[in-house]
Design a protein around this nucleic acid. Structure first.
Lengths: 227, 227, 227, 227
DNA sequence: GATGAATGAGCGTTCATTCAT
DNA sequence: TATGAATGAACGCTCATTCAT
């Protein structure tokens, strides 16, 4: 099964975020057009860049490398991006949209009042997507110098978690002094534990997910009313 | 009050990590020595680099900038460091040593069996030091491309937290499925909340500290035995 | 009289190997084109480099010198050559092609069965071309560190001599234990005697040519059959 | 058997030219002296340089490399040599002295009137020494930029050959238009054929020696008087 | 839209050499 | 003699960006 998210990239059943595989290969029924729709060119360039960034690092990747891999001329790159940093920003946006979409899909499978289940779904969706795309994640979120402490991307994800948490609080099963802070701990804690799993060598998302579930369940649990 | 940590840097009462201010200016009683003890030269170079990295970013800082600020010739830089990246690594080590030392000092002020107090001390020491040195922290831990998911530096801090947590568990006041994971959540959660405080514009460590204390206290609390 | 050899360089009646002098100066009927055919740029760069190498030596010649003389930007140099050593290699190839062509032309003027004449033609062609281009020869064959004991260039020339010698042997006028060795002695002996002539101050090719002819004629002569 | 030549180096029975192995190792009966006799220091430095030049090439060898290998401080190098080129020149002189001495010894084994034998001895001595020391030979005679077409070193060897040839001419067994030219052909021809043997992969001096003997014997042979 | 030759400021790094001790 | 920290001019090379076609 394959579902399309946004218009730039797609997430397949394995949670891989990456180069779009056009169902109908270009040039099948028509002659090879040197002129491609902007969308396709942009996508080719971004995918080429992503692959190279992952393989050799951002700094070591030159525009020449990117255009060579994308099979276009140097000037073409500058038709679509004004700067190398531009591609990274675009890549970051694409990554985030996909992450958000996938995690949202994961949450949507649970009943609206299954708060524990929704948190668990968030964790499983997030860890799964993260583990499946660490290299790209690192490139767009860490290797890019002068990273922003504050970013729209992170804020969007935090908002997503906050929504889940607030619902649980309203239902009386969770309690916390500040939803945003709790969400931040959930988000960064998730990354920390997932990273550790990677270092440990396993890419099986189950163990870190269970761990995170237990820790955060305790952290968020509303004090039991005295009977 | 001023206390010396290690031999390369020092942390003063304000928690600032940085350029050593020599009490007795060099050359007081003697002629200006072109030749300085290696320690001093290295320190000068590192401090100059740190200041520039913070001010203009790593990439934008040239070796020329660094040596100009340190008041030495370009060759001298390469006498002590083999690469620009070398300084960053040295800076990272220095930062970590100082962080560790300061937090350790903070913990040491509490009684060995005051586990909650020790965790609180860790949090306050960590948040305080972090807030006081974010710029340098960012430079050495984020702006440097190809950061390591796994680093000795982080591991050392994690070990420090693990020690505190294990003590509390042995005392029966805390429970958690895995000490290392708990420590990772504490460490990265601390950064997340502190970062948020910075974005919010306040550098007062008190609010984030309280928040973290409450969240982590719940997360770690051992279930109350049924009476 | 001027005849073209290959497409990169030419040898004029004086036997000078070097900068192409375009008959019709570029831009005569058209506007000055910043963009030149690759051939022309490469040629300009190589000729500028050759002149400078001869004048100041390879090491002392900087890329800046070369591009200044060629009237292009530094980047342009690296558009066509990947390294300073690259130009030298190209220069070497160009030199050899020209040498080979010129000597071949000299030989071709003699009758195919005039073996002594062909050897003489080789010697005269070789000495003449060599004396006319010693400086460039030295630069590309001696001043370049890590010269190869074995080179395609030398082998090509040796093959040329071997062909002449073998023809003479088949005709029964020459005898030698090993054609390649004989050719090597002819080639290096030629250089040695020509060098000595240069040191002696004369650039008149006649005396060394006569000397070489006599020596090699004796060396190669088949023993006279007893009548 | 071991015989000493000059005061700087020695040639052993195998014809190896290289680092002096002091019979009585320094420091045997005495304490290690930081201060060494100038001779020893010079020798250590030259040998260290030679080894490095052979291993990594002249350009790639830095003064730091040399002093590190010789086990002295940088300043010490400049006590004994004023320039990197200086060492090469010294190495060249040492090489030539050894070459000359060894070949002279080889010749001296033949009777003064055994002209063919003396030429043969020269060839065998020269080829043997050359093959045994090609790497060093290349370094000091080829890899050094701006080589001199005319050098005292080469002239000395040429003079040695000239002496042999003239003796043979006076004895009436050889004839040639010019002794110096003949000697040059012998010298450079020897190098050419020896080089070819190296490329061919054999270091057995016998085959090239035989070849050279035959070629040069014919080249030099006085025409048989008509009976 | 697409090309790719040309640009040139800029940077990290090297290393022979000096000289105060 | 011997040291080795300090020097700093010099250089090769990079690469993002432009623009005429």
């Amino acid at each position: 099964m394959r579902f399309k998210i946004g218009h730039q990239a797609q997430v397949d059943a394995d949670g891989m975020i990456g180069k779009r595989q056009t169902a109908a290969p270009r040039g099948a029924a028509q002659r090879w057009r040197r002129t491609q729709p902007a969308e396709v060119r942009v996508d080719d360039l971004m995918s080429a860049a992503a692959a190279l960034f992952i393989a050799k690092g951002i700094e070591a990747t030159t525009i020449d490398d990117i255009v060579a891999r994308a099979g276009v001329a140097k000037g073409t790159f500058y038709h679509y991006f004004s700067t190398k940093a531009d591609v990274i920003i675009a890549l970051r946006a694409r990554f985030s949209q996909d992450f958000l979409a996938r995690v949202a899909a994961s949450i949507a499978e649970r009943a609206p009042d299954d708060h524990a289940g929704r948190l668990s779904a968030w964790l499983r969706g997030a860890v799964g997507t993260y583990l499946a795309n660490v290299e790209l994640h690192d490139v767009v979120f860490h290797d890019f110098p002068h990273h922003q402490r504050q970013s729209q991307e992170k804020d969007d994800v935090i908002a997503q978690i906050v929504a889940v948490l607030e619902d649980g609080r309203k239902a009386g099963i969770w309690a916390f002094p500040d939803a945003r802070s709790a969400a931040l701990i959930v988000f960064d804690g998730m990354h920390a534990v997932a990273d550790d799993a990677i270092v440990a060598g396993t890419r099986d998302p189950e163990p870190p997910c269970r761990l995170l579930e237990e820790m955060f369940t305790r952290m968020l649990a509303a004090p039991q009313p005295q009977s």
